[in-house]
C-alpha cells in the first residue's frame, strides 16, 4: 500500500510518516502542497492520500476536489488531517467526498482509528 502525505510543514509530514510506519505502512511519499501532490497522484501508484487543508499554492480542499474530478483518482481514499475546525469547513470537505477528517492536534490512536474505519468501509463496500 503506497501512501501520499501532503502538508506544508515538514515536521507534520515526518510525524504522520512515523505514525504510519508504526501502523505497518512503510511505503510513503511526501508533497508540500496540492500543486505538487496532484501530478504525483496522477502519475499513479498511490492507494491512499493524507492531506492538510491550509497550504500555500493549492489547498487541501481543492486537491480533494481535483482528485474526485479525475476519473482515474475518483475512488482514492482521502483522509484530511488539519487544524481547520469550522463546522462549515468540515461540511464542505464531506460534501467534496472526503473519507475521514482528523483535527490537529491529534493522537496516534485517533489517526489509527480513522484509518481503520476508512479501510473497514472500503472492505464492506466491496
Amino acid at each position: 500500500m503506497k501512501i501520499l502525505i501532503v502538508d506544508d510543514f515538514s515536521t507534520m509530514r515526518r510525524i504522520i510518516k512515523n505514525l504510519m510506519r508504526d501502523l505497518g505502512f512503510n511505503n510513503t511519499s511526501e508533497a508540500d502542497d496540492g500543486k505538487t501532490a496532484l501530478p504525483m497522484l496522477q502519475a499513479g501508484g498511490f492507494d491512499f492520500l493524507i492531506t492538510d487543508w491550509n497550504m500555500p499554492g493549492m489547498q487541501g480542499i481543492d486537491l480533494l476536489k481535483a482528485v474526485r474530478a479525475d476519473p482515474k483518482l475518483a475512488t482514492l481514499p482521502v483522509l484530511m488531517v488539519t487544524a481547520e475546525a469550522k463546522r462549515e469547513q468540515i461540511v464542505e470537505a464531506a460534501q467534496a467526498g472526503v473519507n475521514g477528517y482528523v483535527v490537529k492536534p491529534f493522537t496516534a490512536a485517533t489517526l489509527k482509528e480513522k484509518i481503520d474505519k476508512i479501510f473497514e468501509r472500503i472492505e464492506s463496500a466491496k
Binding site: F9, T11, R14, N18, D22, K104, P105
Partner: peptide, 16 residues
Amino acid sequence: LSDVMMAQDFQDLTGQ
C-alpha cells in the same frame, strides 16, 4: 519516543 514525536506537532500549529 512516540510521545516525543507527537509533541513536535506544535511546530505546525504555532507556525500557522
